[in-house]
Amino acid sequence: MADPMKIRATLVGDSTEVRVLMSHEMETGQRKDAAGKTVPAWFIQSVTATHNGKTVLSAQWGPAVAKNPFLSFKFKGGAKGDKVQITWTDNRGEKRTDEATIG
């Protein structure tokens, strides 16, 4: 099971700023191990963010995104106490969902 994400969501004026740290190897599939064998690609493929159940961001990622990626975005609306939920799915089908409260 993947480690939890670190999510911070803050209200700035009339929009919400969300900052997410994800724990993931993001293996490109280009690297070789000590034995010379290719390390298979393993990376986050899709990221979805929802606010009160409504999708506010949906992204398709590839192997060019860094290890332990950091994602920052803003969306209009949101109020203190609302929940923001982030989900990622990687190319092995592994999934992780975490939630934060807007502060």
């Binding site: 480690d3 939890p4 670190k6 900052r19 740290l21 290890k67 332990n68 950091f70």
Partner: peptide
């Protein structure tokens, strides 16, 4: 500095 993955280690 913003979004330092060290925070993932801190949490663990």
């Amino acid at each position: 500095q913003d979004g330092n993955p060290a925070e993932l280690w801190e949490a663990r």
